[in-house]
Amino acid sequence: MELKNRFERSIVNTLLFMGGLLVSLPFVWMILSSFKNEREVLSIPPTLFPNEPTFEHYINLFQNLNFDIYLVNTFIIVFFSMVGLLLNTMAGYGFGKFQFRGKEIWFATVLLTMMIPGQVTMIPTYLILNEAGLTNSMAGIVLPGLIAAFNIFLIRQFMVTIPDDLIEAARLDGAGEFYIFFKLIIPLAKPILAVQIILTFIGAWNSFLWPLIIANDESLYTLSVGLALLQDQNVTNYGLQMAGSTFMVVPVLIIFIIFQKHIVEGFNVSGIK
């Protein structure tokens, strides 16, 4: 699939470059606007580079945010979402590589939950957590989002492509099921797990509505909730919002850049043989 022709290569490059420019414009604008004062952010025609760069929004951000608490809470949520990812991966493997009674029905159930329109389950879920006495606790915030049918589905699709012979061979060597899962399957699933880690991290990092609703106490708020609190009721403070988003997006980009590398590693087919 390599392009040998120089001309073709430059066409592809140009296409990607133009597209990239178009696609990244709002992102670039978001970052640059976080350094503009309120007047300039919405001036028409808009400016790309700030005329009088200012750090006021960032200063405001760090002064008014209970940064340490929110950050710790956000990391706790990220940590548990990764535990959730492990459970998702196990389930994806279970559905992809095992035959068992009721498999179709259980898988259909999983898929069904993916189709539930998001807002519908909010109040029932809250009531369930309330009955379980889990409101105002980290468990209440974390549990409902732990499992994502989307992720199980995606992982299953991938697991199906792993050759059965490989697993059988390991079993014949006397490896236990969980040993096989952790030592053989997870390394093989690296590309898809890299995607999953990125998605799971972003979801957890930005978690907003549940922490807000479940927490009756600001000590359980996350960074996103803290940022939303900085907003005025009547006047939208765009510069501040841009600074907040920029600040939130940096860790996401770091995670993305680290893990996207692993997407490249695919099957090494000769090794499988």
Partner: peptide, 11 residues
């Protein structure tokens, strides 16, 4: 190309 997915919805 991934940037739009992480750009804040308000931005």
């Amino acid at each position: 190309y991934y940037l739009p997915s992480v750009t804040n919805i308000v931005a």
